[in-house]
Design a protein around this nucleic acid. Sequence first.
DNA 1: CAAAAAATGTGATCTATATCAATTTTTTGG
DNA 2: CCAAAAAATTGATATAGATCACATTTTTTG
Lengths: 196, 196
Amino acid sequence: MAKIVNDREALAIFRKHLEVYTTLSDDEYERVLTYFVPKKLKKHEFLVHEGDWVTNHHWVIKGLLVSNYTDDEGKDHIMQFAIENCWITDQDAFYNQTKAIFNITCLEDTTLMCLSFSNREKMCADMHKMEHYFRKKGNDSFVKQQRRLLSYMTNDAKGRFNLLMAEYPGLYQRLSKKILAAYLGVTRETLSRFKF
Amino acid sequence: MAKIVNDREALAIFRKHLEVYTTLSDDEYERVLTYFVPKKLKKHEFLVHEGDWVTNHHWVIKGLLVSNYTDDEGKDHIMQFAIENCWITDQDAFYNQTKAIFNITCLEDTTLMCLSFSNREKMCADMHKMEHYFRKKGNDSFVKQQRRLLSYMTNDAKGRFNLLMAEYPGLYQRLSKKILAAYLGVTRETLSRFKF
DNA sequence: CAAAAAATGTGATCTATATCAATTTTTTGG
DNA sequence: CCAAAAAATTGATATAGATCACATTTTTTG
């Protein structure tokens, strides 16, 4: 892996991220990397198609992806953005080894590290420290998602916009209004009438 | 603990729950129980007050609790119900060791097992199997919450009602319309006009 | 058991946002 | 660089659900 993804800086950043939650020796980190496979995608390409079996979780080294659900009436609803140093997949389909309900697409050229379900389980079984990492990271994800749910329950689109900007400063410049509206849960016409 | 909570059946149910995600010998299960402290509350009592430091996660042996957020205008929004064999706390405050934004109250007389933050961390450090359990359980909770978020994004209150009933059959009889409306995100007047 | 409190139901508005439609601006690919 | 497609804006309605008001029923409690 370290040979395949020949990006010293990206690997250092990932290690630094893991070490927010656990500590790893050089050997342990080398071992962690062996479970991953690299992947590159161009803008507009799909990482996951609705209906696919979802076999991988993905760490974003570079780029911007979006996880989108299209409802019965053809309306789009965005579950998640992922920029540099985020994980993204269809979690329901990945954890339960079923088929995706989301389309995950690239809004920019993207570089990823892929972690298969079986490799993730093996890594967690073999390395208690990594099981600890994923537990802690999972708790953080849960809390972040709960804040978004609460903002859906209590705020209007402006409040949800502020939450998104607090979480991902600078993301605004990288998104179209259409995509932003789909994330905030309003039509693009309504978003267009807002003055933030 | 096993002596304090002298409810053989409840303990057997909890063990069965853990063993959905991991396997435990008799000795290991005894050890797990030593990390917990029992608690009983009456209907209307508070498990967590908004503004409290949240030091415990709670496993519900018996009863019904609700986690409620009151917004600036005094409107209530229900994040979570917990019935028998559910975990409940203010996760953000618990995981990040800060103060609660939710009030967690009992809608029925309730029996709990409390797991402090430090005991949870110790148990996970000492017993890889329990770290595994909490990782897996955390993933499940994330996915359940994501389904609710998606239903907030795509469905009306009727769709969200159906999701709740699918997750907790029989809960309907135990809830007032006011509480149900606060969970579904509509006023009680609107709920009253719905015919399900 | 009786009074008070809480919950529930229903009618009459009001309002934020969706919808539909047409135009202008920006982006993209050959 | 230009033509076509996509995105964004703006106006005119329509509508689901909120709000306010009040009557009725049920539950709680001293």
